[in-house]
Design a binder for these strands. Structure first.
Length: 801
RNA sequence: GCCGGAGUGGCGGAAUGGCAGACGCAGUGGACUCAAAAUCCACCGGUAGCGAUAUCGUACGGGUUCAAGUCCCGUCUCCGGCACCA
């Protein structure tokens, strides 16, 4: 047999699949369906890297298996092509972002095809295409219509390098998600989507979907629901009520001061009656200068100023307490005001120590002279609450008192904020809104969609953070759709996350011109049965897209309220040095080189074999050689091929066991052990010295999802048939059991002997055999046998003293 | 600080509470070769021993159990997420 020529074989089958539309999903809606989704790539100029291959290989294996199991499989791919890197390349090379995008998509497509992924190439999506972004704008307008879009002037996360406003999600850790510069705070009028309105449903929806526990947890934390109470504190000097939010109403008797955010409106309202207003203004100005990062990350000394002229009154104790402003209280969470209980909250404790405020213990159990006690315990110094030791009970009782007094109510808060939905850049979906002096914000009529991006000479954003579109008079100046008077167009574009918030719907019916997808197609294909992607998209893309989907569900436009039935995530591929792959580290593995040197099958096999699919694993230049050897040895089986259309006696059980293992492991995404099992089988075959046609066909089928090219080729050579038209192989449980089973014999838990017995032998005879063993006899000699343990088909343990 | 996850040979990693180290890589010895590569065969956790074998061994300290990498308690380290969220 000649050496395996992967280059020609891979090219041959890729051409065959393409010409025969082998992997295109059928429109026959009577068949059982499987919708497998992978996160579509951002087509960057660097091309794909091996991480992409791992990300897609998981569902690739499952999709190929599903097809052989008789499913109508939708396994689509597309490109999430709007975004900054493309625009920056366009600016640098002085060409249109359209050209950059097309160039990069072509590069990606070529690479994906070379790896032999079984994507449905007839349904490719490009989010920057008119036929697509028209519907992105359409959904936005629906949200606008339903009051989920609003504008607000607030302090926003601004990246001075990219010159854009970022959402909280895109500026985690105080760094820009794109360029990693420090984020600064800027006051700006921005667009928001009211995602908080769906907070509770996004949380509840998690109960009925099959996501990795980790994924659910991260989403729960991100939404950050807390239950507590709003409590009104009276102000002594006037009849104002200062409302706070707390999760611990049980500690009300321990309140010794209040803190409000520096921006709290009550200060402006009572400016004139505050004697140290200048000091408060100064403090506020100082805080505004700090970035979000400094304000939250550098938790050091507590700072603040006491308000002279406003005094709070504890609604339960009626005691007078001072009010401070401090930047450890945020205007954006709760009511921007808190009741401080220094004895039982670390932050309040630090503040009280610094400002010399009383600390009153109300829960026993700690030493409040040293630090705040945040644990549970018996209530003390709390009048009617005294003696209660159950936290829940104490909270309930405090709540009912507050409700009776009419100065408190139960409430819920979320950490999640509304979604800042705009960027001041060119390469994004234009926001289809017109500003009219008379009519205010007016939606562009649906029939005028798509609202196209105007042609530009210069894509650079303005220095003041204005969109480059603002410089184009012909775009900006327009007529108001309502009153037909002069009006101006919105010049901001949508953020990168817009296009990916509904792409899985478009795949169901990608060429539809009159709807974003037909109801029939959606009813058949949705929900996505299995969605795999990176952990980094769990809190942004996934929450955003679940929100859009739930909105469309409320309009009756999609059949399910959750888009994804199941979600898994792959681990990163690290560089050979164990560090995250990056160009600056110089540890990036070039995909093209790997395909060139080893072939697509070896690459596919290796990314799944290198470790647990869900965990990060370093690339090993040597490790991939093992997969190469495996593939070559599979090819070599043709040299020891014999006739035979059923399993031989010598290998029957090996095959059944391996098929079972591979079948189960694929479903559990334990690809590494599935491959290991096939390697073991291959070793067994070579030990036997021959393989028949039935056996080799069977091996080709189970290996096909991992290494589709070589298996198609071998299968075609030995049977004359096409493997992809075959069914997935079955195993028979009865052949998975050996004729004799090895039983381990231990004495006092230590291995002493091994016995070969028939399956399901009875206890007495096995123990008798064990005790008859020379080695066992020797060890037990002179001791009393206290206990005999028999685990059927596994082991015997004799306890002797 | 809080919430997750992990810690097993030289390396990547396997092990429904039941033979620790499957499978692969690297390494060592041998075969083939003028030679090398490729391929094939054997060995491949530590200690003692020529050896059969004995003994220790899954981050560390305790515990439960006939039996613990796996379960429980405590400690350390690393990774991921959230972070002055009241």
């Amino acid at each position: 047999m000649d050496r395996y020529d992967y280059k020609s074989v891979e090219a041959k089958w890729q051409k065959y699949w393409d010409e025969n539309h082998t992997f295109e999903a059928s429109d026959d809606y009577s068949k059982k369906k499987f919708y497998g989704l992978v996160e579509f790539p951002y087509p960057s100029g660097h091309g794909m890297h091996v991480g992409h291959i791992k990300a897609y290989s998981g569902l690739e294996v499952i999709s190929r298996k599903r097809r052989m199991e008789g499913y109508n499989v939708l396994f689509p791919i597309g490109f999430d092509a709007y975004g900054l890197p493309t625009e920056n390349t366009a600016i640098k090379e002085k060409i249109h972002p359209r050209i950059v995008t097309d160039r990069n998509i072509e590069k990606f497509t070529g690479q994906l095809r070379k790896v032999g992924f079984s994507f449905d190439w007839s349904r490719v999506i490009d989010t920057t295409e008119e036929g697509y972004y028209k519907w992105t704008q359409w959904i936005f307008l629906k949200m606008f219509e339903k009051g989920l879009v609003f504008r607000d002037k607030t302090s926003v996360n601004y990246c001075p390098s990219c010159k854009v406003v970022l959402s909280n999600e895109d500026s985690q850790g105080g760094k820009c998600d794109v360029c990693h510069s420090d984020i600064v705070q800027k006051t700006k009028e921005v667009w928001y989507l009211r995602i908080t309105e769906y907070a509770d449903r996004l949380l509840q929806g998690l109960e009925k979907v099959d996501y990795l526990p980790n994924v659910k947890l991260q989403q729960q934390n991100w939404i950050g629901k807390s239950t507590g109470a709003f409590v009104d504190f009276s102000i002594k000097e006037n009849d104002e009520k200062l409302r706070i939010y707390t999760t611990r109403p049980d500690t009300l008797y321990g309140v010794t001061f209040m803190v409000i955010a520096p921006e709290h409106p009550i200060i402006q309202k009572y400016r004139d009656s505050i004697s140290n207003i200048q000091a408060l203004d100064d403090y506020k100005a100082e805080c505004a200068k700090k970035s979000e990062f400094e304000r939250t990350q550098l938790v050091k000394d507590k700072t603040g100023v006491k308000i002279e002229g406003l005094t709070g009154i504890n609604p339960i104790t009626k005691k007078e307490i001072p009010i401070y402003i401090s930047d450890y209280v945020m205007m954006g969470y709760g009511t921007g005001a808190i009741m401080a209980v220094p004895a039982h909250d670390g932050r309040d404790y630090d503040f009280a120590k610094k400002f010399g405020i009383d600390i009153i213990e109300v829960i026993k159990g700690g030493d409040i002279s040293k630090e705040a006690y945040t644990g549970d315990g018996e209530m003390v110094n709390s009048d009617v609450l005294n003696g209660i030791s159950n936290k829940k009970e104490a909270i309930e009782k405090a709540l009912s008192i507050l409700e009776e007094l009419g100065c408190g109510e139960r409430g819920v808060q979320y950490k999640m904020k509304d979604w800042a939905f705009n960027r001041q850049r060119y390469w994004g979906e234009p926001i289809p809104i017109v500003h009219c002096e008379k009519c205010g914000m007016v939606a562009v009529p649906y029939e005028e969609l798509p609202l196209r991006l105007p042609e530009l000479e210069n894509f650079e954003p303005g220095t003041d953070g204005e969109s480059p579109l603002a410089k184009i008079d012909s775009f900006v100046n327009c007529k108001c759709p309502k009153c037909k008077g002069d009006a101006k167009r919105e010049t901001d574009t949508m953020p990168q996350w817009a296009g990916s918030s509904w792409y899985f719907l478009r795949y169901c019916d990608p060429k539809n011109k009159s709807e974003f997808a037909s109801q029939k197609a959606l009813e058949y294909w949705m929900p996505v049965d299995w969605y795999n992607g990176g952990m980094e998209h769990v809190t942004r893309h996934m929450i955003y897209s679940r929100f859009w989907h739930k909105f469309l569900y409320d309009l009756g436009l999609v059949p399910t309220d959750e888009p994804y039935a199941k979600r898994t995530a792959q681990g990163l591929i690290l560089g050979p040095d164990g560090e995250k792959m990056s160009k600056t580290r110089g540890n990036v593995i070039d995909l093209n080189d790997v395909v060139e040197d080893f072939g697509a099958d070896v690459l596919r096999l290796y990314v799944l074999f290198m470790g647990d699919y869900e965990k990060a694993a370093p690339w090993s230049v040597n490790g991939i050689k093992g997969c190469k050897r495996f593939i070559d040895r599979v090819w070599g089986l043709q040299d020891i091929l014999t006739d035979g259309d059923e399993y031989s006696d010598k290998l029957r059980s090996n095959f059944h066991k391996t098929i079972k293992k591979v079948t189960d492991d694929i479903e559990a995404m334990k690809f590494n052990t599935a491959i290991a099992a096939m390697m073991t089988l291959l070793n067994d075959i070579y030990a036997v010295g021959s393989i028949n046609k039935a056996e080799l066909s069977s091996l080709c089928i189970m290996l096909n999802p991992f290494a589709p090219h070589i298996t198609e080729e071998i299968y075609n050579i030995i049977t004359g048939k096409i493997l992809n038209e075959q069914e997935w192989i079955e195993y028979d449980e009865k052949f998975c059991v050996d004729e004799t089973i090895e039983i381990v014999v231990q004495v006092n838990g230590k291995l002493k002997a091994k016995l070969n017995v028939a399956p399901d032998s009875d206890k007495d005879s096995v123990i008798a055999m064990a005790l008859a063993d020379e080695k066992v006899k020797e060890t037990v000699d002179g001791k009393n046998i206290i206990k005999q343990i028999y685990v059927p088909n596994k082991l015997v343990n004799i306890v002797a003293k």
